[in-house]
């Protein structure tokens, strides 16, 4: 039986947003009716950046609102898209006169509601561009009519790079192009030792045996590609790394950005073990991790699991990644 620290589960998302904004009074402001988090001081004369989606993935997205990253984040219920009306309010809030880039993880509901909000924003002469994030290698079926790959931890990279470009004065088209390029090059693989539990529920979303690992798991408790035998940290890292290396065709001399991401119930010691293993494996292959993040950035409630995201990195992307950022979850 899993217990949760909640009041009325219905109030979980608005109360959590309120707590986040109260904790960062210099950075954030809350528009409670639409569950929209904006910067405390709205930016002027730059391309606006809005993202959002279901809750349960914190610190994504509201944790990345601030200078150098998002202007606005909008939150749906746990694992459910915000409504078109919420996204519309968020998109309008992000507009500072130079258009708005919407960063959207590739899920049917999110894509539908962001597209609709973009279309209706046109009534107010707000230009929008959608950048779809679809990095999850486990859902790469090659089916052109299918829903495509899911969006997961590469969202952080896209939000960071677009945020830096927008802050530096790039145009709507340029910011969107930078986001799309990053999304097209980044891939993620995930695994779970146990599923997350919905707040207020007693049981996790799926059960795994003591000797089982769910490989290719999604961030909404979706089942993975299959189950494989449990193994040690180095072995688990290899499970994720091998398909990524193959897909990205990494060669000796390549440089990458890596995110070692906890899925909500993984502790930092575990993540550092995976990071260590990833560095050693890639070093052996002559691939340099030029930049990296290790922590829980795109989570799935309290799922005990990890994801590894890799993106081949060029000089422009390195500069954008290194640009200053000041948000609740990412600051340098």
């Amino acid at each position: 039986m899993r217990r949760s620290i909640v009041n009325d589960p219905e109030d979980l998302v608005p109360e959590a947003l309120e707590g986040l904004v109260l904790s960062h009074p210099l950075l954030l402001a809350l528009e409670a009716e639409h569950r929209v988090v904006t910067r405390r001081h709205r930016a002027t004369d730059k391309v606006g950046l809005v993202s959002g989606g279901g809750s349960g993935h914190e610190p994504l997205h509201a944790g990345f609102v601030g200078t150098g990253m998002l202007d606005v984040a909008v939150a749906g219920a746990v694992f459910a898209s915000p409504t078109a009306l919420q996204v519309l309010a968020a998109t309008k809030a992000a507009d500072a006169g130079r258009g708005v880039v919407q960063i959207v993880k590739n899920y049917t509901g999110d894509v539908l509601n962001f597209r609709i909000a973009g279309e209706i924003s046109g009534d107010d002469a707000i230009e929008t561009e959608i950048v779809l994030v679809d990095d999850d290698l486990a859902t790469d079926t090659g089916d052109a009519d299918g829903p495509g790959r899911r969006g997961t931890a590469a969202t952080v990279i896209v939000e960071k790079l677009c945020g830096a470009a927008a802050e530096a004065g790039a145009s709507l088209a340029e910011v969107a192009a930078i986001g799309r390029r990053a999304a097209s090059r980044a891939r993620t693989m995930s695994l779970a030792l146990s599923a997350g539990t919905h707040p207020g529920d007693a049981e996790p979303q799926f059960a795994l045996g003591d000797d089982e690992v769910e490989l290719g798991v999604g961030i909404h408790g979706e089942r993975g590609r299959g189950r494989v035998p449990f193994r040690d940290a180095d072995g688990l890292t290899e499970l994720l790394l091998e398909p990524l290396r193959e897909e990205l065709e990494l060669h000796r001399g390549d440089q990458v950005l890596a995110i070692v991401n906890g899925l909500g119930g993984t502790y930092p010691l575990e993540l550092n073990l995976v990071a260590r293993s990833l560095h050693h494996h890639l070093a052996d292959a002559g691939v340099a991790i030029e930049r990296s993040l290790v922590g829980s950035y795109v989570t799935s409630l309290d799922m005990h699991g990890i994801s590894i995201t890799l993106m081949p990195l060029d000089d422009e992307q390195s500069r954008l990644w290194d640009a200053p950022v000041r948000t609740p979850a990412l600051t340098w």
Binding site: A77, S81, T83, A84, L85, Q86, G109, I116, I120
Partner: peptide, 20 residues
């Protein structure tokens, strides 16, 4: 139409855009 656009699922936004 604004009423339907504030509804979740797929039917909410689709009915919303239809009434728009």
């Amino acid at each position: 139409y604004m009423a339907w656009l504030g509804v979740g699922g797929t039917s909410g936004p689709l009915f919303g855009m239809f009434f728009r």
